[in-house]
Computed example of a mutant assay.
Amino acid sequence: MGELFRLLKGGNKPSLLAAVVNTIIAILKGGAFFFTGNVAMFAEMMHSIGDAANQFFVYIGSSLSKKAPTPRFPNGFGRLVNLVCLGAVIIVGILSYETIIEGWHHIQHPTESTGVAITLSVLAIAIILEFAVLYKAGKEILHEVGIKGTAFSPLTTSFTHLKRAKPATKLVFMEDLVATAGGILAFVAVLISHFTGFLQAEGIASIMIGIMMFYVVGKVFLDNARGALGETDEQMLTHIAHIVSENPHVKDIQKLEVIKEGEYLHVEIIIEIDPQYSFAEVDDIQDKIKELILNQQGVTDITISFDEDDGIRTWTEHRDQRTVLKTRD
C-alpha cells in the first residue's frame, strides 16, 4: 500500500487537477440539465463526465507507469500510460456517440428549454474552470520541453511543442481545449435558441461538440497506439546522434534507437571505436557517453555497446544528416 501511495504521488499532476475540476463541472452541468432539460447542457455534461473519467484513468496510469522493473517485467511499466490512454478514449468515444445522437433527436424534435439563466451561469463557470485547466496544462507542456515563455505562452507556444509533451499532459491539454471550445459553443447556442426561437441551435451545438470529442478520440488513440508499439523519437534521435558524434573517441555509430517508453525515453546505441583502446579506456569512454546521454531530457534508460571500427561509414542514412555526419581525419 505504501508503494501505491508513493506511485500516486508521482502521477501526472495536470491530469489529476483536470479530473477533479471536470468532476465538479459534470455535477454542476448535470444539475443544470436536470432542472432545464437543455440539450446543449446535456452534451456538455456528457463531455465533462467523459473527461473526468478519462483523466482519472490517465492519472492512475501515469502513476503506475513509474513502477520500477520487476523480474517478471524487466522492461518496466513505462508504456502502461499509453495502454491506459487507449482504454480511456473508448469512454469518450461512447459518450461522443450519445452526444451526437441526442443532438440529432433535438434537431428533429426541438423543444424549448427552461431556466436559461441557470444554464448560462453554469456554462460560464465551466468555461472559466476549463480554461484554467487548459492554461495549467499548457504551462506543464512548456515545463516538460524545457521552454520558458511569457504569460501567454501556455496558450500559444504550447501548441508548437504539443507533440513532445508527455502522453498524459497532451491528453489533458487536448481534452480541455475541446471542452473550453465546446462550452463556448454551447453558450452561444443557448443564446441563439433563447433570443431567436431557433431551437435546433442547441441540437446543432450538441452534434458539433460530439464531433470535436471524436476528433480527440482519434488523435489520442493514434498517438498512444504508436507509443504502445514503441515509437521512435526522431528529434531526440537526431540530437543524441549529434552529441555522441562530437566525442573524439567515436569513429562511427553502428546503431542508434531512441524509443518512447510512456513518458520516458530508452536509448540503445552501438558505437564503433579504435580497437587499440584498452578495457579501462573503453570503460571511461562508456561512462562519459552514458552520463552525457542520461543528462538529456526524458532519457532514463540507456544501453551502450561497442564494436571495433571497420573503416566503413554506417551512419549515413539519417533524415537530417547535417546534424549527424562529421568528417574526421
Rank of each mutant, 00 (worst) to 15 (best):
T157A: 15
M41R: 07
V217M: 06
V81K: 02
A52L: 08
G31K: 06
H239V: 02
N54Q: 10
V220T: 15
G31F: 15
E234S: 11
I240S: 05
L229M: 14
R79M: 01
L191K: 03
E257T: 09
L86K: 04
L265P: 00
E317D: 15
I128H: 01
G2Y: 11
T111G: 04
V20H: 03
L325M: 11
A189L: 06
E44N: 10
D310M: 06
K255Q: 14
V267Q: 04
I211M: 08
I259N: 00
M212K: 00
N75M: 14
L191G: 02
I100E: 02
S158F: 05
L294W: 08
L134A: 02
D307G: 00
D51L: 13
A126K: 02
Q55K: 09
G61K: 00
D284Q: 15
A205K: 06
T111S: 13
I125N: 01
V267H: 02
T196S: 14
E263S: 13
K136N: 11
I192A: 10
E112C: 07
I273C: 10
D310A: 01
Y59N: 01
T156Q: 08
P71G: 06
I211Q: 02
D320I: 13
E317A: 12
T157N: 11
G203T: 02
D287N: 11
I100R: 01
